[in-house]
């Protein structure tokens, strides 16, 4: 395999909230075209890390580089090439779905917005939702709209914080297929968190485990399953989290 370009480089990244260290000197890279699962138990530091990547939380120390650039110096340029989605972030409920998509499209300076929205709506099967009020959507529908928003600027890097939480198995499956498809067709790099190990095994090229703010292991799902001598990633997760006591 040829050596790929690092899209995200994190070195000794640390976040302290008062006396509590939420993220503790972590270092990892994500390479162009990879789908990387960022895994760990509740409170491990996943969301905090992703928010530091997006400049929503200021790191206490350490370095973040995206596309080889420093977030402090090239914030707008980096954010233009990135997008984010989380089941826990919403869009204005008193706007119609298409109005929301159009607004975010403009914030990202997307050309040919109409066409783009139509494509995404086809893709996520939300065409009939476009004229609806965003506030009236079911949580799974809202998640699909959020994902459409996350692709509005054709991002090179997607940061997803539990994107499939609250999706029904059918839509969750379609979302996974979709992530694989945009990876293949557009070479999009994805870093995402999920508590669904089956899903992670299905689509991730590589996983990074974090526990109590520290990175405990990294590798392909297959490598880790073999290394820990388990039958699947779920058991690997339990072993890593419980410190091998199960």
């Amino acid at each position: 395999m040829t050596k790929k370009k690092a899209v995200i480089e994190v070195k000794d990244l640390t976040k302290k909230f008062g006396g509590f260290t939420a993220v503790d000197k972590i270092s990892f890279s994500v390479f162009s075209g990879e789908i990387v699962g960022f895994l760990g138990p509740n409170g491990a530091g996943k969301t905090t890390t992703i928010q530091m990547l997006l400049d929503l939380v200021t790191p206490t120390s350490g370095m973040v580089r995206m596309f080889g650039k420093d977030m402090k110096k090239a914030r707008e340029e980096i954010l233009n090439r990135v997008n984010f989605s989380s089941a826990y972030v919403a869009m204005p409920y008193n706007l119609k779905v298409w109005e929301n998509l159009a607004t975010f499209g403009r914030l990202y300076g997307v050309g040919n917005l109409k066409q783009k929205i139509k494509e995404l709506a086809d893709f996520f099967e939300i065409t009939d939702l476009l004229p609806k009020m965003t506030g009236s959507l079911s949580s799974g529908q809202a998640t699909r709209v959020n994902l459409a928003k996350a692709l509005i600027n054709d991002p090179e890097l997607l940061l997803l914080d539990e994107p499939t939480a609250s999706l029904d198995p059918d839509v969750a499956d379609k979302t996974r297929k979709l992530l694989l498809q945009i990876q293949k067709e557009k070479g999009v790099t994805v870093l995402y968190t999920s508590h669904n190990m089956v899903e992670v095994e299905e689509i991730c090229n590589r996983v990074v485990f974090i526990n109590k703010g520290k990175i405990t292991d990294t590798g392909t799902p297959g490598e880790l399953v073999k290394k820990y001598g388990h039958k699947d990633l779920n058991d690997v997760f339990l072993t890593i989290v419980r410190g091998g006591e199960n």
């Binding site: 972030v89 204005p92 008193n94 975010f104 990202y108 300076g109």
Partner: peptide
Amino acid sequence: LEEVWERNLLNIFVTPLK
């Protein structure tokens, strides 16, 4: 305040908007 109520702030602040 509306952005806060709508939990939309993160969406806004991850765009290139200054």
